[in-house]
């Protein structure tokens, strides 16, 4: 494997966004890119990352290799990379380490780290292609704000999506709160759009602790997409350049 990123920032942010949800995971490398799928310990949430080969310049991977990585250790190594550094990830055929090289833009500094790999026997879930009943795109910063505000009221949020908009409701001991985002297009700045497509109304409840955790990915994308169908897990997607993505799945709460 040899994969070079123009800026370490992307990889630093991806790892930062998932390291509190999953501790150990395989980065599955093959000629299409670097993929990761891992569930949290409680089996309530799942993270699915895809960094396509086109994300890297260049990308080369001659055969499938899983790189079993302790994300806490990887975070320590990535601290040594500045956001603007060129990052190269390298690995041999049957590796016991992964090699990370950080180069300053002006090429007067080269840092090189070897991170020990681990054998991880990971459960892999098959996630079917789903036609969701409702899809809502909104500014990622708005979603983060709504989740953190409502977490102060309750540990659970009910998300209701209709043609008019998407409503987040929390009921807690101190009272209730709700936030509605109405569909609109911002002609000056499409990053501010709220876009809803719906085949049927949806209402589901989720844990805010997990949703606020997913929001650690906010810096990766201006917009976030929520995909919902009644009685199936929510998908929260942060789309990245070159068809790469960071997706989170969260099991719905069951009614009282």
């Amino acid at each position: 494997l040899e994969a070079r990123l123009e800026a370490a920032d992307l990889f630093k942010k991806v790892v930062e966004a998932i390291k509190d949800l999953v501790q150990h995971c395989n980065f599955d490398c093959n000629d299409s890119g670097i993929a990761l799928q891992a569930m949290d310990n409680s089996h309530v949430a799942l993270v699915s990352m895809m960094l396509t080969a086109d994300t890297f310049t260049p990308f080369r991977c001659d055969r499938n290799i899983p790189l079993g990585i302790d994300l806490t250790s990887l975070t320590k190594v990535l601290r040594a990379a500045q956001s603007s550094d060129i990052l190269t990830i390298k690995s041999e055929d049957a590796p016991d380490v992964v090699n990370l090289v950080f180069e300053g833009k002006d090429q007067d500094r080269i840092s090189e780290y070897d991170l020990k790999l681990m054998d991880i026997d990971q459960e892999h879930l098959g996630i079917p292609d789903t036609e969701y009943a409702a899809t809502a795109s909104m500014p990622a910063a708005d979603f983060k704000r709504i989740c953190s505000d409502l977490l102060l009221i309750s540990e659970a949020v009910s998300i209701e999506c209709t043609k008019e908009g998407i409503t987040f409701k929390a009921e807690g001991d101190i009272g209730n709160g709700s936030v509605t985002l109405r569909q609109h297009s911002d002609l000056e700045n499409s990053d501010k759009n709220v876009d809803i497509s719906l085949t049927e109304p949806v209402a589901l409840s989720f844990s805010l602790k997990y949703l606020t955790g997913f929001c650690k990915a906010t810096g990766l994308s201006n917009q976030v997409r929520l995909c919902l169908s009644n009685d199936v897990p929510l998908m929260v997607e942060y789309a990245l350049a070159n068809n790469s993505y960071l997706r989170f799945y969260l099991a719905p709460k069951i009614g009282d």
Partner: peptide, 14 residues
């Protein structure tokens, strides 16, 4: 508070 589902009820292991 509603109970929390388990993801593996929705997605089969592969």
């Amino acid at each position: 508070t509603p109970l929390q589902n388990d993801l593996s009820e929705f997605f089969a292991m592969v």
